[in-house]
Nucleic acid binder design. Structure first.
Lengths: 252, 252
DNA sequence: TAAGCTTCCTTAGAGACATTAAGGAAACAT
DNA sequence: ATGTTTCCTTAATGTCTCTAAGGAAGCTTA
């Protein structure tokens, strides 16, 4: 099917060009500038041609959003694997910092991920997006599981959790193949919510009224999470000029 | 100027009708359905007529967004004042719960508040929105200040804060007329970020993968915040059938 | 190699939207 | 009664999404 014939290669190249154009427009002129016509113009084609590649604007936007999600996930995975021999706590910090680094470097893209212009109330997000989301969450989850296996972090007594909460946690644990018990999943979700929530607030400029540079705020959040997960907090390496090997952990 | 003549009254009535129509469309059909034409149609007028009331779509959206902000703020203030004789900790809990109640009851509106369809990167939000935002933040700030005055809550040693963070906190304290010292402002902002961040995540459906009912999660967040602010956590009253006086604290 | 199928792109066009311009009619002020 | 202001209308421009119909080229197969 996805052969390597002349046409197939051309098609793939065009698809890539389209995605690049979408991104270029998004970054340069905002999400409202991402129109079928503008994208086509960017490629030197005329509007309706794009319908051979995407069923409509929504599918186009959805595909690019999934790209962004994948890129963010890849950045986190790369940061995690760049220190594969460190203890899981350090790798978790590395992945979290990579997440923020990516979000800061690509604010427009990050915004599309969680406040997608498609996400109208009552409309299910496309399955592609959901899948991309799962891979994303998985990064943090996997590291937490490693942590849990290596040296269990402190968890609350399940009896202290609200019954309805416990019920939901059980369901979630089933969904993640019981890699964690509900109490541990609860700690993990709490940490994740704080981390991701803080980043969303930053990118949506909801904290501009108080902070101009969120880096120390984010680091403090990491410190709290570290304490909660029973790992040592270690501050970020100051700059890191590219080490010998040319492995970039930033832009995928 | 803003007299009470026949025409002035008519104008005010039309303005109110427009805002209602915008909201109706937003709630019923999502933000993309809020078009100048659709709003005009809703009023039985034809499109360009609206330009006598608003300079353009952006100003219309901005005005309605400010309305929403004001309504949310009013709901919080009402909840706070409904138990004016309680200690500040309880009133803070009441205001926080009112915030979530409003957000849950009006998800589309709440979403417009923090992920405004106007907020393109590089575009300043209109001053109206900024002002509405200040009043909103003020509710939580004021209660925290009361708390601080009544019985100081535990704060970190300023020397333990990152220098750049301390610097930012100082600037923020200047902006709020030094009603709190930087260390206390830091605790306040941390609590606020968690609370507001969690709510944003909920409304943006970023936690659906784990939770179907966020109420206990929110309550646990409140418990943490209470501990941090040194106040007693008290669970919400179960339902509260409207007490004698017909004062609604929900829909303004 | 020639006929036929597929793919890619074009132009034309319908329908919706934001916005400006020009004009009429009613309300208001003097 | 006259002139001005206000409110609304229609007309028109240029944008957008998306469908339809057709041409040209690439691929397949006999």
């Amino acid at each position: 099917m996805a052969g390597t014939s002349r046409r197939d290669r051309a098609r793939r190249a065009t698809l890539a060009e389209i995605r690049e154009a979408v991104r270029r427009l998004l970054v340069a002129q905002g999400s409202t500038a991402v129109t079928i016509n503008a994208v086509a113009r960017e490629l030197g084609m005329s509007g309706p041609a794009l319908y051979h590649y995407f069923a409509g604007r929504d599918e186009l936007v959805g595909a690019v959003t999934a790209d962004f999600f994948a890129e963010l996930t890849a950045a986190m995975e790369a940061a995690r694997d760049a220190c594969a021999d460190d203890p899981p706590g350090r790798r978790l910090l590395a992945a979290a910092r990579a997440m923020r680094r990516w979000a800061i470097a690509h604010p427009a893209e990050f915004q599309w991920i969680f406040a997608s212009p498609l996400a109208e109330p009552g409309k299910e997000p496309p399955s592609r997006r959901v899948a991309a989301g799962r891979r994303f969450e998985r990064v943090f989850l996997d590291l937490t599981v490693e942590l849990w296996k290596a040296r269990r972090f402190p968890v609350p007594d399940p009896a202290d959790l609200a019954p309805s909460l416990l019920e939901q946690l059980r369901r979630y644990c089933t969904a993640i193949d019981e890699v964690l018990p509900p109490e541990a999943a609860h700690v993990m979700l709490t940490c994740w919510t704080r981390l991701y929530g803080l980043l969303c607030m930053e990118v949506l400029h909801q904290l501009d009224f108080a902070y101009s540079d969120m880096e120390p705020v984010f680091e403090e959040c990491l410190r709290e999470i570290s304490a909660r997960l029973g790992v040592d907090y270690s501050p970020p390496e100051p700059v890191r000029r590219r080490p010998p090997a040319p492995a970039s952990d930033q832009d995928v």
